[in-house]
């Protein structure tokens, strides 16, 4: 069985959890609502070299989705590590 977990360790775990979420969701917002919507016309003035993509268009229809996949991958890795830190090597 796992060692017992102090309330302080739990509070630390939750604070870290919240800051991970804040970081990931900021990127989520900047990429989709920022690059894909708010700044799309400015970004469209730039072209991705070697392709026909205007940068804003690419973010709106391709790039944001790739970033979403990466965000969840980071979340999985970071949270699984946090769980291990809280509980020792043995997790749930």
């Amino acid at each position: 069985m796992s060692k017992s977990v102090s309330p302080e360790a739990r509070a630390r775990y939750w604070r870290k959890n919240l800051s991970v979420l804040a970081g990931l969701l900021s990127v989520w917002f900047l990429v989709s609502h920022g690059c894909g919507i708010l700044w799309v016309d400015q970004l469209d003035k730039i072209r991705i070299p070697g392709t026909g993509f205007k940068l804003g268009f690419w973010f709106a229809q391709q790039g944001s989705i790739y970033v979403f996949v990466v965000l969840i991958a980071i979340y999985v890795l970071v949270m699984n590590r946090l769980d291990r830190e809280l509980l020792g090597e043995d997790d749930e």
């Binding site: 804003g56 709106a60 944001s64 989705i65 979403f68």
Partner: peptide
């Protein structure tokens, strides 16, 4: 999307971005 052009991105981003909220929150 093919009739909306760039604006069609609301569906692409909307449905996948919503998935991120679901998975994280």
């Amino acid at each position: 999307i093919s009739f909306m052009g760039r604006d069609g991105a609301v569906y692409l981003m909307g449905w996948t971005g919503g998935y991120v909220l679901l998975a994280l929150l």
